[in-house]
Design a protein around this nucleic acid. Structure first.
Length: 862
RNA sequence: GCGGGCGUGGCGGAAUGGUAGACGCGCCAGACUUAGGAUCUGGUGGGUUCGUCCCGUGGGAGUUCGAAUCUCCCCGCCCGCACCA
């Protein structure tokens, strides 16, 4: 062993060494252990694009620090990683390079795994999963069959979003501002028959259980609440004049029905063209509908800044007034929401008002608020508040809120309508006309119809003999795949050729980690009931209404089936901020991308992780800074120099203690990695012969433990935790500056460095382990990553003196240094006796004295 | 328009009712050095009569002994949703 420790820190060599040794020692492997509380720490598994970007590095730095901290705190921690490895980019790359999507995908996975290992992330790699692996997607198909069995997977014809560039349909959640979430191409509406998961059947529970998610950011809960979009109202029926047919509308304002002076249908409503047929309006309606429905979703959304519509030529009968009112069609009514038809009440709805004024339609006031004219012609804007009912037959004179209740009852009794709840949430369209996904396990038989593939015939494997066509499902080009026999009657049948949305794969992967190689079941019940729910989930906010909603839905289905222990999958959620540079998100087009690869090469894993956790609190955006990472790197080297400088006396001490322990009868020595709990307790200094300098540093150590512990466990504020560690390092330096070398106490230095290194372990795992070994502890106590988290001693924390601020009328006038246990009345005495304070009190009377123990005294003077 | 968040030194940020600006970056000075963009030490909100006091957390008002923090109004920025009937 070297006699001295080199004060230059070679992170390349150190990181390489520990990566190997940790793997050999199987340091991060975890299994069910009922003697410890469990902690499931999870990051959103990545799409294997080829290399990590800074957002990944941030995500995993947060997660790894969290996992390591909880391990040291005595939790049995599940911390796995896997790959969201189905999806379009692989297929597009395969088309471009004429290879197989799997080739591209698995090469990328290898590259990214390597980068993760360089970062020193403490995953249990035995649990690695990839959703494109047949051993995984078999169970995604099983999940489909479970939903099918429960009536939650259905094939139906509906208006769906179609991305012409990706040549596939998309779920509603995957359309952002009318554009495809992946490629940005404006999507089109198409009427197609597709497979849906009936997430709407869970709308109410998904909404209600949001209240359980106290560990989620308010922002995400609000986004989900809005996305689900529950609204209570009535479906009302308006007979169509001259036909034996009724028009059903959804409204939240049935109390305004006496003011319904016309009706509006969505242009793509099935009755729009039918009602116009044979009327003098037919031609105009046909032209209007064709023009509006041809627009992409986005163009249509933009076009509605100007409301536009035409009269259909048909009339409806207002069921309460008996009036004949015209039926219009207009671009501001959407087929997607409610029934695709509305009762227009221009006096009390802003949109109807604007439309009525534009086309000269009558406006009738039926609710009179303060200052609202009774004459609709004189109304300047729609009135949407409450008021007194007028022009409303038997309800005249009532308060509108009372009428609202009364009318609902009356209308139901008279059969005019019924109370109902409407949601904005649509069923989840899971069919994709693409290759690189899990095939939908369904067979179509001429005789038996739609037949699910029996579970024992899973997985339905992806065929290799496909042509990567665009515009139709590639699976349809594989004869061997399509042609099959009906599982029910054995006759000739055809397979479903669509694959599942990759969000189906990611909606349940966190269960699979608990028994990733199980080939008999999707997950082991015992293990899932031990590990779940996820205690801390970490990822980007962009999945607020995608993955995070789908996962909650699938969890509820599994919960109803009795397969998982909780109705919610993620107890706490942290949505990390973006990593930005020069004020903008890193992107190739802006040319402001910083590659983690380069940074790791130049500064090493510890400095990279440290900077990213230190520069901002995790949920806030983080501005990448070259100077900032240099500061972090400087700190890493500064710690190392301190360790090197203290090595000689500390090692002598550690060796002496270690040998004493080893000499004891039960001090049998196994290999270093396995000795985590037994030999070698933390060094407790005697404090004999200590002076004020020693006591002061020891207090700093305990203060740091207190601050780091609470900052991480209560708030996940890694930035302030690291600041506290920097202060501790500064304090140790200050001690060594202040006390002559021969006077410095080795027991104090050893105890301080012991605490420091254990607290650094979650942030700079390589540095902490290397220093731990250099000081001799690894030999006797095992890896720093298997140590318990240090405890602070409140008695030490509160010993010594504190500075008390003396205020006069809230302004600081003096500071007193007093023993920290000084009682309040003594503080008051000292404050009043202060010469500086007396100048400010001078002649006036002290009306009140407020003391805050350990902090301040405030004299209220008049 | 509705909803969520934010506004503090030159910069990233600390302080969630009790000393505003911890910690880091940058900058200034000193020490060591053949030299250093290394390292160590000190300083660093503005003003000032400089061992002093005044001002200061987007602006204004309020609650309180005391407000960056709580309340109300206004301004600005970011994010999400948006003719949802």
């Amino acid at each position: 062993m070297r006699a001295t420790v080199d004060d230059r820190y070679n992170f390349h060599a150190v990181e390489k060494k520990w990566r190997q040794r940790w793997a050999e020692e199987r340091l991060y492997e975890t299994d069910v252990d009922r003697t410890k509380p469990k902690f499931y720490c999870l990051e959103m598994y990545p799409y294997p694009s080829g290399k990590l970007h800074m957002g990944h590095v941030r995500n995993y730095s947060i997660g790894d620090a969290t996992a390591r901290f909880h391990r040291m705190r005595g939790f049995n921690v599940l911390y796995p990683m896997g790959w969201d490895s189905f999806g379009l980019p692989a297929e597009n790359a395969a088309i471009a390079h004429n290879t197989h999507p799997a080739t591209w995908t698995y090469k990328n996975i290898d590259a990214m795994r390597e980068q993760m290992q360089r970062l020193g992330l403490s995953y249990d790699w035995r649990r690695e999963i990839a959703c494109s692996h047949p051993g995984y997607y078999k169970w995604s198909q099983w999940l489909f069959l479970l939903l099918y069995k429960r009536g939650l997977a259905v094939r139906k014809k509906a208006p769906v979003n179609w991305c012409p560039r990706c040549a596939t349909v998309l779920a509603n959640e995957q359309v952002e501002e009318g554009r495809c979430w992946r490629c940005g191409t404006p999507v089109e509406k198409r009427e197609l028959e597709q497979w849906f998961f009936r997430i709407t059947a869970y709308a109410d529970r998904l909404l209600k259980d949001l209240d359980l998610l106290e560990g989620w950011p308010e922002r995400v809960r609000v986004m989900q609440r809005n996305w689900i979009g529950r609204s209570e109202g009535m479906e009302l029926e308006f007979p169509i004049a001259g036909r034996d047919q009724k028009l059903t509308v959804f409204t939240t304002r049935h109390d305004t029905i006496y003011g319904a002076t016309f009706m509006v249908l969505a242009p793509d409503h099935p009755l729009t063209l039918e009602l116009a047929r044979g009327t003098e309006q037919e031609q105009a309606v046909r032209e209007f509908v064709e023009r509006v429905t041809r627009l992409t979703v986005r163009d249509r959304a933009e076009a509605v800044d100007a409301k536009e519509g035409v009269f259909t030529g048909a009339y409806a009968i207002n069921p309460v007034t008996g009036e004949r009112i015209p039926i219009w069609t207009a671009n501001y009514v959407l087929m997607d929401y409610g029934t695709g038809a509305i009762q227009a009440v221009p006096a009390h709805d802003e949109r109807d008002f604007e439309f009525a004024r534009q086309y000269g339609l009558p406006v009738r006031v039926v609710i009179q608020g303060e200052g609202v004219p009774a004459d609709g012609d004189r109304l300047a804007e729609a009135y949407t508040g409450p008021g007194r009912m007028i022009n409303s037959g038997p309800y005249d004179g009532m308060d509108s809120r009372e009428a609202y209740r009364k009318m609902a009852e009356d209308f139901e009794r008279r059969g005019i309508g019924r109370r109902t709840v409407n949601y904005r949430l649509r069923d989840w369209l899971i069919s994709r006309q693409r290759y690189w996904g899990a095939p939908i396990p369904i067979v179509y038989c001429d005789r038996c119809g739609t037949v699910p593939v029996p579970e024992d015939q899973l997985p339905v494997l992806l065929p290799d003999d496909v042509r990567f066509t665009v515009g139709a499902s590639p699976l349809a080009t594989s004869e061997s795949f399509v042609r099959t026999n009906c599982p029910r009657c054995g006759g000739p049948a055809r397979r479903e050729t669509d694959t599942m949305d990759t969000f189906v794969d990611s909606s349940w992967y966190y269960y699979r980690y608990t028994s990733p190689r199980d080939d008999k079941q999707p997950f082991d019940r015992e293990k899932v009931f031990y590990w779940l729910p996820v205690d801390q989930y970490i990822g980007g906010v962009e999945h607020a209404v995608l993955h995070l909603l789908y996962s909650r839905f699938i969890t509820k289905v599994l919960y109803d089936e009795g397969l998982v222990p909780s109705p919610e999958p993620f107890t706490r959620l942290l949505t990390q901020g973006m990593v930005i540079k020069d004020g903008a998100k890193m992107s190739k087009s802006k040319g402001n991308v910083v590659s983690p690869e380069d940074i790791l090469e130049e500064y090493g894993a510890d400095a990279t992780r440290l900077f990213i956790l230190f520069a901002a609190p995790p949920e806030r955006d983080l501005e990448w800074s070259e100077h900032g990472i240099e500061g972090a790197s400087r700190f890493v080297h500064r710690v190392w120099r301190l360790v090197a400088a203290c090595a000689e006396p500390v090692r002598a001490l550690v060796r002496g203690e270690g040998e004493t322990a080893a000499a004891a009868p039960d001090g049998a020595v196994a290999d270093a990695g396995a000795r985590q709990d037994s030999a070698g307790a933390e060094p407790v200094p005697s404090r004999q012969g200590w002076g004020e300098a020693e006591e002061q540093l020891w207090r700093e150590v305990h203060r740091a433990i207190y601050r780091v512990t609470t900052d991480i466990s209560e708030r996940m504020q890694f930035n302030t935790a690291i600041a506290a560690l920097m202060e501790l390092v500064n304090a140790i330096y200050a001690y060594r500056e202040r006390v002559a070398p021969e006077q410095q106490r080795a027991d104090l230095l050893a105890a301080s460095l012991d605490r420091l290194l254990r607290m650094l372990a979650p942030f700079t795992p390589f540095l902490a382990e290397e220093a731990w070994e250099a000081l001799g502890w690894r030999e006797f106590r095992g890896s720093v990553h298997r140590q318990p988290w240090p405890e602070y001693d409140p008695a030490v924390l509160e010993s010594g003196t504190v500075e008390i601020v003396v205020q006069v009328n809230g302004k600081v006038r003096d500071r007193l240094r007093v023993p920290s246990d000084t009682p309040e009345d003594r503080l008051r005495e000292l404050a009043l006796a202060s010469p500086k304070v007396r100048e400010w009190v001078n002649g006036k009377s002290v009306a009140r004295v407020i003391t805050v123990p350990g902090r301040l005294v405030n004299l209220v003077v008049r």
